[in-house]
Amino acid sequence: MVTLEEIQHIARLCKIYLSPEEEKEMVKDLETILSYFQKLKELPTENVMPALSSIEIYNVEREDIEKQSLTLEKIARNAPSFQEGFFVVPKIVGT
């Protein structure tokens, strides 16, 4: 059972603004989807190692060599607000 409080909590965790109508719809949608997904609980998985991926690749290493990367100017071009080499964010310390 998915509750409105849970939806509000999850929206806070993922930092997405939802309108009150969207919150209500989310309760209904997640409830429908997760009830169908309950089926998965039938599947016995004791002593099964979880699979993070479809391939077994671990610790891919490379030489630590200095390389030219994108320039600041190129990166800044897509930033909503960029000044003197910094991404600008609202003031976050007390006023």
Binding site: T45, V48, A51
Partner: peptide
């Protein structure tokens, strides 16, 4: 649970 199910499916 889903990651374990994935291992079984695979």
């Amino acid at each position: 649970k889903a990651m374990k199910a994935r291992a079984l499916l695979r």
